[in-house]
Design a protein around this nucleic acid. Structure first.
Length: 606
DNA sequence: GCAAGGTC
């Protein structure tokens, strides 16, 4: 029997869990595992994701051979992927003599589609082959043994959905990319350097739209002046600085201060409330990326790449996960034990002495656990193996893991308001009672800035008061962390691809990331603005989730794949026509920016 | 040469 998994680690786990011993061998450069299962010879092979891809027939890939709009009515074909061709060869070679093939791909939609790709490839070399689908929700012995006891059928509806998404994305992406690129060339065929094109994609472009919308908000922002009164307030319990609400005009502020000077001061509010600051939930991919971008100055793309390396070397668990609940099968104590021989050893030992109660998020992808350290390592070791950035990220994963097992921080939130006649001055402070998880998780630690413990009703004196002139500030540039949050909210991309969509915009020259913030280039601003003006729905942040919802109907049998594809194609064809009408106007704008770029290099707008 | 989704 032949068993096909989505990745090498799972193929190996299957061999380990189904047999008492196994051996490994290489076939066309790919690792495979041999073992005995129920008295039969078994081989398990791990792929590297998809092995086939959709493309247009060759003659349609000459961009000048047809109007891009015609792509909406063309068929696409499944072709082997060059990058993973060795996996395909290995599969064919092993499948020739195996009549039973177990499809042990991940238990998600993509896994179902990859399973079908495997079926197609195996059938091509072995028409006798029979197929069984095994689905396991976690790569543990229990789940895997159970899955092989109870094989199921391949869900072709889910396969249809994934293939429909692949076809839609290719068609839409190709049509709009070619339209934009060819329109620019028509106006000035030297505006784009050789090999460069202007891309559109149903994920990358709405992402650009989010960043550009923020930039436009900034550019259109009209700052307003306002005035605040800052005063030093003295009470019998001590003195502190407090400030007023904003005044629109200086005269108002001055009048309030004049009135305050001749008024008796009185504390009208004094709140001292003990609150608990809970440690973070177990770590998923998007939070890893957001926190790396915010606190470690590591871009999301670099964070996932680095996490991947750490995973491959055995330092951390699989980094592509949406799960924020530790599975019961994960031995948290054993992980702590593993960390005892590192610089976090004392802290880990302290946690080991008490009961273990981890925090809990609210999502479970039923495929992978949250990200946690799988090996205790020293700084020197990780740095030697993978560099400084890897250490920074590994250290973060360890600290995050320890934080999820730690007690909350306890903070007293303080608020005091004092009235001097009509002028009210307010102050906020905090007193740290217990640092809790902050001890191991300094990224979130708050400073102790306590106010004197006064009581409501006591008298107060204004020692000094000054009026400060201020200006309202535009919103800051979109941070990468915020962008990831919005992408998740709008359902743009998956946990494993979100950082790619940001990165594509960087590669295409539409934006840069500076100090964790997204700065659109002039090209990005111009492209996004044109689409907002002439094809609004295709850059709208909700375009992706609407498409996904339509596709999901195929998977659950509510809709026919042909009809859904027809609808999607039809809608985008309409948007295409609207954009096509304006293509020269848009292209002229883009050419202007592109010419500037060739002279000066890519520029940011501000 | 176009996309997004797996995976390394």
């Amino acid at each position: 029997m032949l068993i096909v998994a989505e990745k090498r680690s799972v193929a190996q786990a299957i061999a380990k869990y189904l047999a008492t011993s196994y051996s490994y061998f290489k076939i066309s450069g790919v690792m495979a595992y041999r073992f005995k299962y129920k008295d039969r010879q078994a081989v398990s092979l791990g792929l590297s994701g998809h092995i086939l891809d959709f493309d247009f027939p060759q003659e349609l890939n000459k961009w000048n051979a047809l109007e891009p709009v015609e792509l909406f009515d063309k068929i696409t074909v499944l072709v082997p992927r060059d990058e993973t061709i060795k996996y395909l060869y290995a599969l064919r070679a092993l499948a020739r003599d195996e009549d039973e093939v177990y499809l042990a791909l991940d238990a998600d939609s993509e896994g179902e589609a990859i399973a079908y790709e495997v079926v197609l490839q195996v059938r091509a070399v072995n028409p006798r082959a029979r197929f069984k689908r095994v689905r396991f929700n976690a790569v543990t012995k229990k789940d895997i043994v159970q899955a092989f006891e109870r094989p199921v059928e391949l869900d072709l509806k889910v396969v249809e959905k994934v293939f429909a998404r692949m076809v839609s994305d290719l068609t839409i992406g190709a049509a709009f990319t070619r339209l934009l690129t060819l329109a620019v060339r028509e106006v000035d065929n030297k505006a784009l350097p050789f090999g460069k094109f202007l891309s559109y994609g149903p994920c990358q472009t709405p992402v650009l739209g989010l960043v550009v919308s923020r930039e436009l908000e900034r550019l259109n922002f009209k700052p307003e002046e306002y005035y605040v009164v800052k005063g030093i307030v003295e009470t019998e319990a001590g003195s502190f600085e407090a400030r007023s609400r904003p005044f629109k005009a200086r005269e108002e502020a001055e009048a309030a201060v004049r009135a305050a000077r001749v008024s008796l001061g009185k504390v009208i509010e004094a709140r001292f409330e003990e609150t608990r600051v809970k440690p973070p939930a177990p770590l998923d991919t998007v939070e890893l990326e957001r926190r790396a971008s915010k606190w470690l100055n590591i871009r999301a793309k670099a964070a996932l790449d680095t996490a991947e390396e750490l995973y491959r070397r055995g330092y951390i668990s699989y980094p592509r996960t949406e799960t924020t609940i530790y599975p019961p099968t994960l031995d948290l104590r054993a992980v702590l034990e593993e960390l005892t021989n590192t610089q976090f050893g004392q802290y880990a030992e302290r946690l080991l002495r008490g009961p273990i109660s981890p925090t809990r998020g609210n999502s479970d992808d039923r495929a992978h656990p949250p990200i946690y350290p799988t090996r205790g390592a020293t700084k020197a070791e990780v740095e030697r193996a993978l560099g400084t950035r890897a250490w920074k990220l590994y250290e973060f994963v360890v600290r995050h893991f320890l934080a999820t097992l730690s007690p909350p921080a306890i903070v007293e939130r303080q608020r005091i308001a004092v009235a001097f006649g009509p002028l009210v001055l307010e102050a906020e402070g905090r007193r740290i009672i217990e640092r809790g998880y902050w001890e191991i998780y300094p990224y979130e630690e708050e400073e102790d800035r306590r106010l004197p413990r006064v009581q409501a009703g006591v008298w107060a004196r204004m020692v000094s008061a000054k009026i400060e002139k201020k200006k309202t500030e535009p919103p800051p540039r979109m941070s990468e962390s915020e962008l990831l949050r919005l992408m998740k909210k709008y359902g743009i991309g998956t946990d494993a691809t979100m950082q790619d969509h940001i990165h594509t915009n960087v590669i295409r020259g539409y934006m840069r990331i500076v100090g964790g913030r997204c700065v659109p280039t002039k090209l990005g601003m111009t492209l996004a603005s044109s689409l907002m003006n002439h094809a609004r729905p295709i850059i709208d942040p909700t375009v992706r989730s609407k498409m996904e919802a339509a596709l999901q109907d195929i998977a659950v049998g509510r809709a026919d794949v042909k009809k859904v594809l027809e609808t999607i194609r039809g809608e985008f064809k309409t948007f295409y026509k609207g954009l096509y009408e304006k293509r020269q106007e848009i292209a002229r704008e883009l050419v202007k920016v592109l010419r500037e770029e060739t002279r000066n290099g890519p520029r940011s707008d501000v």
